[in-house]
Computed example of a mutant assay.
Amino acid sequence: MLRRRDVKERVLELRRWLTVVDERSIEAGQSRDVPLRRVAVIAVVSNPFAGRYVEDLGPLIDGSVAIGGFLARQAVEAMGGLPVESYGKAGVVGLGGEQEHANAMLTTAFAEPLRVAVGGALAWIPSFTKLAAPGASIDVPLAHKDALYVRSHYDGISVTLPSDAPAADEVALIVALANRGRLNARVGGLAADAIAARDGLR
């Protein structure tokens, strides 16, 4: 479990966290034996650079490691034992900060714990960030964790933040996972069970 002092030591303070679980097995009247479970875990953290311009965002990158590990563990737990095939990340910056603050918090340093938590992954993690008022919605993109060319896994999960988050001095960081591609995917391309190149693309 993430201890509050662990985050403070790395600049970012974890103020609250939430989990969203969306599971479905029927779409367009078609029932599938393996349901699609998409989860998103949101961490609302302090933004020490809110209200001022800081050239070096290194402290945000360093501070994101503990948050990334915490979100990764919570997201895997929310999958309820289902295998993870897709992942994504996102960030919403409160109005006192800059969009670049979320980007600094979502680099490889933040993402590496997620790769470990899902049992290894080769593909880059799709990402989206924005500046927004409390209660904003954001679509977190999803793609296959081992090969970006798997079209069936181009997906996402919509997340609506609480009405009071992120505050002007906060950032909401989000990790999303899914156990399979879209329920009725049928546009061709590389199948998930045909991944062979192990290069993160094919």
Rank of each mutant, 00 (worst) to 15 (best):
I61W: 01
Q74H: 08
A143V: 10
P126H: 09
G96K: 13
I157V: 15
D33I: 02
H101G: 14
I138Q: 01
K130S: 12
L148R: 10
V92G: 02
F70C: 09
P162S: 03
H144G: 09
P162L: 00
W124N: 11
R151L: 15
V54D: 06
V44K: 03
L106R: 05
A111L: 14
G120I: 09
A123W: 04
L71T: 08
A75K: 13
Y87G: 08
A172F: 03
R38P: 04
L60M: 08
A117Y: 00
P35Y: 01
E27I: 03
S127C: 02
T160H: 07
D33L: 12
A168M: 08
P141Q: 10
D169H: 09
Y154V: 12
R52C: 06
R37F: 03
D146K: 03
V45C: 12
E85T: 10
A40H: 02
A143Q: 13
A75N: 05
S152L: 00
T107C: 06
I138W: 00
V116A: 14
G88M: 04
A121I: 11
R38G: 07
V118N: 05
G51F: 14
G94Y: 00
Y53S: 15
E55S: 15
D169G: 10
M105F: 04
A136W: 07
F110V: 02
G58S: 15
S46Y: 07
K145C: 02
R32L: 14
V65T: 07
W124P: 15
E98W: 13
A90E: 05
R32M: 14
V93M: 07
T108S: 14
T108Q: 14
F128H: 14
G81N: 12
V54T: 03
L36P: 06
N103Y: 05
T107S: 15
L95D: 01
F128D: 06
K89P: 01
G135R: 10
N103D: 11
H153W: 06
G69Q: 07
M79F: 08
L131M: 04
G119T: 03
Y154P: 02
S137K: 10
G119S: 15
A90V: 02
A121D: 02
F110Q: 05
F70T: 05
L131V: 10
V65A: 13
V84N: 07
V54Q: 02
V84K: 01
I42L: 13
E85S: 12
L60K: 01
A72C: 11
A90Q: 08
Y154A: 10
I125D: 00
D139H: 06
S86C: 15
L131D: 03
G69K: 11
M79G: 08
A168W: 12
E27T: 02
